[in-house]
């Protein structure tokens, strides 16, 4: 079985699909939480991810340029996360909160505007051109290569991908603990379930909303940094490119279902990568140029066939 077919499939399609899936998954968590707790589709989510990656890059640049030592992106991401969460909270306070009692569409519109504002701000501050996030070619993890090679199961996984896998799993465990074991996490699920009932139960909905932005912000941050680690560069359009697959993942998993969003993310990520595999004949099944279309197609089919998503989330 582990012939050249399997080798190629696993290393060049499946693993990259999984990596992309992890990134989508983390991003989709924030989208699904906002959608179910604040009840609107946040179009600025991708841009926040992108901003997080730029902030991380800046922290890294300051460390190596001014302080004289290099730091790993995941370390630099910690202070950057605080800024991203702050960005979320400030955005909510000044641009979304005024519409809390208004028609949903107003706040969707506001978030659509924020998408442009944040992206333009990043373009003004960091310039519109690509930046190198981590230079050099990522070599496969040598230990894993030797070990897997010795059992005829050659795996070529660079360290950056291992970081992404481990990081995503760690985030999932933390999120699961938060939502199921902590008071605020349970309250988040309660508000997602029924905001009106939460209100007359005396739950402090504002506090829950702040928690949602913090959790969503941290996940968006992780997704942004993982994406930058994966593609090793920064672009101001990277957030927007992620937006549609993340929406697709959230809808696929069922709105308000964080685990569903994760599964949705993995499915979309894998589907995008595997659609380029030469399943029939020699050429890719679908031209790689149409990758983004795969996520969209899945989303549209889902909306028609089962709008509540795989996990029976809320459907509006």
């Amino acid at each position: 079985m582990w012939n050249s077919f399997g080798f190629e499939f696993i290393n060049f399609y499946f693993i990259p699909g999984l990596v992309l899936g992890c990134i989508y998954a983390l991003g989709a968590i924030g989208i699904t939480l906002t959608f179910s707790i604040l009840r609107f589709a946040n179009f600025a989510h991708g841009e926040t991810m992108m901003t997080g990656a730029y902030l991380t890059w800046t922290v890294m640049a300051i460390c190596s340029g001014v302080l004289g030592f290099a730091v790993h992106p995941l370390v630099a991401a910690v202070p950057a996360t605080l800024l991203v969460v702050l960005l979320f909270l400030v955005t909510d306070r000044y641009f979304y909160k005024p519409f809390r009692q208004a028609d949903t569409i107003k706040v969707v519109m506001a978030s659509f505007g924020m998408m442009l504002i944040i992206r333009s701000a990043v373009q003004v501050i960091w310039g519109p051109n690509q930046l190198t996030f981590v230079p050099g070619i990522a070599k496969p993890n040598a230990y894993l290569k030797d070990w897997s090679g010795s059992i005829d199961f050659l795996l070529l996984i660079p360290n950056k991908h291992l970081f992404i896998f481990v990081g995503t799993i760690a985030f999932m465990m933390a999120l699961s603990y938060l939502l199921n074991k902590t008071r605020i996490g349970k309250a988040m699920r309660a508000v997602s379930d029924s905001p009106d009932l939460a209100h007359v139960t005396g739950i402090n909905v504002d506090q829950v909303i702040r928690a949602t932005w913090i959790v969503g912000g941290a996940c968006a941050m992780a997704a942004g940094v993982f994406l930058a680690m994966d593609i090793q560069m920064l672009e101001t359009t990277m957030g927007f490119r992620m937006l549609l697959p993340m929406f697709a993942a959230a809808i696929l998993g069922g709105i308000g279902k964080p685990y569903g969003a994760v599964l949705g993310g993995l499915v979309i990520g894998l589907a995008e990568e595997l659609s380029a595999y030469p399943w029939i004949g020699d050429g890719p099944l679908l031209s790689p140029g149409y990758k983004t279309g795969v996520a969209f197609a899945i989303m549209v089919v889902m909306l028609i066939v089962r709008p509540q998503g795989l996990f029976k989330g809320r459907s509006f």
């Binding site: 349970k186 699920r189 309660a190 997602s192 379930d193 029924s194 009932l197 939460a198 139960t201 739950i203």
Partner: peptide, 13 residues
Amino acid sequence: VFVNLSVKENLEM
């Protein structure tokens, strides 16, 4: 009631 929360979680809320 919060339908997606357990009985115990409902009471905690």
